[in-house]
């Protein structure tokens, strides 16, 4: 551990952290000061930075949603994959797009200000999975037995 550079795991961790930071960069508030009590109005620079970031969020959200839709459409329209694979891909792309829209348009993230909303959404997702999953299992089982 006395080499000239940092150890490999540490370097990997650093790269990982950097990648994570890039991935969430558009959600990071670039203000240098900690989010302490804001007594005065935010400065012009802060507003400008927020403004740019919000616009970027909408732009990225729209671009990603568009790309994911086009990809799913192309998969089916030009038959790029066999039906079972294509179906799985279409559902996967749809799911990713739902996440993108929740993040960029509905502004749900893991950063505090919407924690209650996030918990509500996660709980609803659990309920949905249980009810939809249960319905599908029971009824497909019934169909298989009756056919």
């Amino acid at each position: 551990m006395s080499g000239p550079g940092p150890s490999l795991p540490r370097r990997l961790a650093r790269y990982g952290a950097a990648a994570l930071w890039v991935a969430t960069a558009f959600s990071v508030r670039p203000a240098a000061a900690p989010p302490a009590r804001r007594t005065a109005r935010p400065s012009k620079a802060e507003i400008a930075a927020d403004r740019r970031r919000d616009l970027l969020t909408y732009g990225i959200g729209y671009g990603l949603a568009l790309a994911l839709t086009l990809l799913a459409f192309a998969l089916v329209y030009w038959r790029w994959a066999e039906p079972p694979v294509a179906l799985a891909l279409v559902f996967g792309l749809g799911l990713v797009q739902v996440l993108v829209q929740f993040r960029c348009f509905l502004h749900i993230d893991f950063k505090g200000q919407a924690r209650d909303d996030l918990l509500l959404i996660l709980f609803s997702t659990l309920i949905v999975l249980l009810m939809v999953g249960g319905t599908l299992v029971v009824l497909f089982n019934l169909r298989a037995r009756m056919m």
């Binding site: 799913a72 459409f73 089916v76 179906l87 279409v90 739902v98 829209q101 929740f102 509905l106």
Partner: peptide, 23 residues
């Protein structure tokens, strides 16, 4: 929130109903 939510639902309809249907 309502309007964006409707778009999310439509994405599910487009994938599950239409894309799966024509496949």
């Amino acid at each position: 929130l309502f309007w964006h939510f409707l778009d999310v639902i439509w994405i599910a309809i487009f994938s599950v109903v239409y894309l799966q249907g024509v496949m």
